[in-house]
Write a protein that binds this DNA or RNA. Structure first.
Length: 873
RNA sequence: GGACGUUUAGCUCAGCUGGUAGAGCACUCGCUUGACGUGCGAGUGGUCACAGGUUCGAGUCCUGUAACGUCCACCA
């Protein structure tokens, strides 16, 4: 940075250069220093299909703030980056790309497909990583991982085999959620429910013996093809005698029994339910209890299968129409009612999921959930804010087995081998040459694992587990996980039970939960709405620091936030403000000849700003410790703009103009406060703080590895702070009066101050000259100036002879107003003090404070009245 | 159906363990102030969603209501 700086801060000239400097110096690299306390964050790995969006920007800004802060505090920090292979999302992209070439998965085969997928990952997988760098993320890129890399895959195999041996992974025929578009099973967590308008079709199923019929209703008439029973409640007197009788299923004309099951609600509808075990999860359970046949009527892409030639090939909605028509023709349709119900959809593609019976692999969850619940209950793992405990507990306590097999090719292939001869299942890490039981030929399960199965291992698989590595020993368990509330169930919960089960340790101590970044109108940013804001465009326009500051400002754990251009430009303005404060200091110091330490003697205003700064250190550090990043940054904002720029820099101008020792002291304080404040600001705005810090006198080679400021009791100056505050109050009061009276700032005026704090105001005289347009300042304990404007503060009576400029009437009115205000204030306090129960029950200090205030109020009132009286003379 | 969150100045939001409400933006007035007009100074603007309760005292604690939002469960 040259001495002649541009008036405006231009991030484009700075950010890439600084980032390259950090990389070159290898500052992001975690040294694994056994003498230092570790602080570890593993990144929530973004999908390789993804582009950086605002959610990532927020998530990673928060992580970078924490990491940079802890690094400066002297921790051995590791922020471990990486990406997720995102099985469904990536596979869908590849399939789509192939479709455009006129190819299908079957055309290219498994190996050909995987080749394409890896090529895709080589080409695009690094894209989001480059985008994270633009944000300033100080990740240890040398440790970058990928969920499908060798190490992570090794961990996946290890876990799968261990769980299988322990009986916690099993294969079974269950009803699962099937996405007819992605053509794979998905877990319960991957289903999103939405309200959809639908219908109730009321149907009649006749008895075989011709003795009438049972009436029931369904929202999915097409599943009737797969009905294998009709159920009623065992306690339902209406139907008690009918249980065991046989019905004829309309259209199909198959015989099905009437059964009794508690699952049926008597008071809902007619109290009769058709049971389709193959196509409804509840019916599946009923079917199991009653040993009913499971009749599948749909193909994987949700078309009617070959068993029903008249409908075969129709998709489920076409079939519905056709079947309703046929039911009507057969006289089985009673009526159609409008009905709105919740329908499960695939969280990836939005297609309505189809419950489907199939052979899948599952993780038995109950034994794993126990310790996971306990770890949060006993405080080993903390959610911030803690209200998310409730979500977590609810999910964990009602957990169902986790369907982990996916009918996809892109992912970790299930290490299960089936003997083609004897049917033996062998689960092991390496493919067996032949069946260990009969020596027959074996074939590996074609399916892969749920993406979340590998991300569940992320905090330790990335550190080398299952091997006992140095990194694992030093950096694990990790410290903080930063993520949005939307993936607590998908990811956070699964990491917790996985870590406890496999490593015997928690995966992390604190989980900082943040909300969603919404648009300026509070809407979720989404592709379909087209209201997404591209963080890279914001960076391009305003700079990464401005974006980061915006995301940190007002950020409160767990709460959503709105993003708007106005906020970013306010942040950009703040960056510019800092830039100009630095410019001012650099213009006034001669090169780097100012030591970056406080001078031996501190003037009143120095002590004031140092004391304020010292308190800032404490507040910022404390709030970072509580994950209140928004509060920390707002304290910084206020200090920089209000305390340092608006007051201290203005005050410093007096001594800088005087020159000599006084000027030298002021320069030192300016440099000291500026460079230390930059340190506090660095985690939030890394680029600009580095750029400025490098130009100021400094020790060390980078702000990002400089020591974090520490609260110092020796820098606490409460007396001087209060003293300076009196002067500031007086200056404000004078400016206020002058503004009210429309006195041009260029018009200087004498100021006479009558006060009990004579020394204070004598010291403050020069400040008033500079900042309150005073031509000269006289201080005395008992001034009485005739024909002057009188300003009353709690500490002083200030007279300004502005005779010719004063509108007497206006002044009278104004004084009257002020008296009224003082009176009502006094009244308010007196009312309290006259309240016996207040005086007796409130703490003594509070009562005393009120008494003091009443006294001051009385004094002020007296002064005001006196002034008014004088004016009237 | 269950749980949670939000409701404070025109807008976006702070307000910790209860002691006469704050910031940024917007608005009004003034300013070629030797760092910055992406700026400086001064202002206008709020019965803190509503109703009860606890307390000497409630934006702050408790109970309930309403609106908006989110998550979970789900009756065919």
């Amino acid at each position: 940075m040259a001495k002649e700086l541009a008036k405006l801060y231009d991030p484009k000239n700075v950010e890439d250069r600084i980032y390259d400097f950090w990389l070159e110096k290898n500052y992001f690299h975690a040294k694994n220093d056994p003498d230092k306390q570790p602080y570890t964050i593993v990144i929530p790995p973004p999908n390789i299909t993804g582009q950086l969006h605002m959610g990532h920007a927020l998530d990673n800004t928060l992580q970078d703030i924490l990491i940079r802060w802890r690094r400066m505090q002297g921790f051995d920090t590791l922020w471990l980056p990486g990406t997720d292979h995102a099985s469904i999302a990536t596979e869908a992209k590849i399939v789509e790309a192939m479709r455009k070439e006129g190819l299908s998965k079957d055309d290219v085969g498994r190996d050909g497909f995987l080749e394409r997928a890896w090529e895709w990952r080589r080409q695009y997988g690094g894209r989001i990583i480059e985008q994270l760098k633009k944000l300033g993320s100080s990740c240890d890129w040398a440790r970058e991982r990928f969920t499908l890399d060798e190490g992570c895959s090794k961990a996946v195999l290890e876990v799968f085999c261990r769980l299988y041996e322990k009986g916690l992974i099993y294969r079974g025929e269950r009803i699962i959620n099937w996405c007819p578009h992605c053509l794979t099973s998905i877990s319960d967590a991957e289903v999103e429910y939405e309200d959809q308008a639908g219908h109730f079709w009321h149907l009649r199923y006749p008895f075989k013996d011709g003795s009438g019929y049972l009436q029931l209703a369904t929202t999915r008439p097409e599943t009737l093809l797969g009905d294998t029973a009709v159920a009623v409640n065992p306690n339902d007197d209406r139907y008690k005698d009918l249980v065991g009788k046989t019905l004829i299923l309309p259209i199909v004309h198959r015989e099905i029994p009437v059964i009794a099951d508690d699952y049926v609600e008597m008071d809902f509808g007619t109290g009769v339910v058709k049971i389709t075990p193959a196509h409804d999860p509840n019916d599946f359970e009923v079917g199991k209890r009653h040993d009913l046949p499971v009749v599948n009527v749909l193909t994987p892409d949700a078309k009617i299968n070959e068993d029903y030639p008249q409908y075969a090939g129709m998709d489920r909605y076409e079939a519905r129409k056709a079947i309703v028509k046929d039911l009507e023709a057969e006289g089985a349709l009673v009526k159609i009612e409008d009905y709105s119900h919740n329908v499960g959809t695939c969280y990836r593609c939005g297609t309505t999921v189809e419950p489907r019976v199939s052979l899948q692999w599952f993780v038995k969850m109950e034994p794993l959930a126990g310790p996971a619940i306990e770890a949060v209950e006993n405080g080993d793992i903390r959610f911030i804010p803690d209200r998310f405990n409730k979500n977590y507990f609810h999910w964990m306590r009602n957990i169902r087995d986790w369907c982990i097999s996916r009918q996809l090719w892109w992912g970790h292939r299930i290490p299960a081998y089936y003997c083609q001869d004897c049917g033996e299942i062998t689960v092991q890490k390496d493919a067996p040459a032949c069946c260990p039981k009969c020596g027959g030929k074996v074939e590996q399960d074609p399916d892969t694992l749920d993406t979340w199965f590998s991300s569940a291992l992320w905090p330790f698989s990335t550190l080398g587990w299952p091997d006992d590595t140095e990194d694992l020993r030093h950096y694990y368990p990790t410290s903080t996980l930063v993520t949005g509330y939307d993936i607590i169930t998908f990811w956070v919960s699964r990491m917790i039970f996985s870590a406890l089960e496999y490593t015997g340790q928690k995966p992390f101590s604190d989980v900082l939960i943040h909300g969603l970044v919404r648009d300026a109108l509070g809407r979720k940013m989404s592709k379909s709405l087209g209201n997404g804001i591209d963080p890279l465009e914001i960076i391009d326009q305003y700079g990464a620091d401005a974006l980061r500051l915006t995301l940190a400002t007002g950020n409160s754990p767990g709460n959503d936030m709105r993003f708007s251009d106005e906020k970013v430009s306010a942040s950009r303005n703040f960056a510019n403000k800092i830039w100009n404060a630095a410019r001012y200091i650099l213009m006034n110091i001669d090169g780097c000849d100012v030591p970056c330490a406080l001078p031996e003697t501190l003037a009143l205003e120095d002590k004031w700003v140092v004391s304020r700064y010292n308190r800032l250190v404490k507040e910022v550090t404390e709030n970072l410790g509580k994950f209140e990043l928004g509060i920390a940054v707002s304290k910084l904002y206020d200090f920089v703009w209000d305390v340092f720029c608006d007051w201290y820099i203005e005050l410093s101008k007096i001594r800088l103009q005087q020159g000599g020792d006084a000027a030298q002291d002021a320069k030192q304080v300016l440099v000291y406060i500026m460079s230390n404040t930059l340190k506090l600001l660095h985690p939030f705005m890394p680029f600009i703080t580095e750029e400025i810090w490098q130009t100021l006198p400094h020790e060390g080679e980078s702000i990002m590895i400089s020591p974090w400021p520490v609260f110092d009791p020796a820098l606490d100056f409460p007396t001087e702070e209060a003293e300076m505050q009196r002067i500031i109050t007086a200056i404000r009061a004078i400016r206020n009066r002058r503004a009210e009276m429309n006195v041009a700032p260029s018009k200087k005026a004498k100021v006479f101050i009558a006060t009990a704090y004579q020394p204070t105001f004598e010291r403050g005289a020069m400040f008033m000259q500079r900042l309150a347009s005073a031509s000269e300042v006289a201080v005395d304990a008992n001034f009485e100036i005739e024909g002057a404007v009188c300003i009353v503060t709690q500490d002083a009576k200030i007279f300004i002879p502005l005779g010719e400029l004063v509108d007497l009437e206006a002044e009278r009115a104004r004084l009257g107003k002020e008296i009224a205000k003082a009176q009502s204030d006094l009244e308010f306090i007196n009312k309290k003090l006259q309240n016996e129960s207040f005086v007796s029950k409130a703490p003594a200090a509070v009562v005393q404070a009120q008494r003091d205030q009443a006294e001051k109020c009385k004094e002020k009132l007296a002064l005001l009245e006196e002034s008014l009286a004088k004016l009237n003379v």
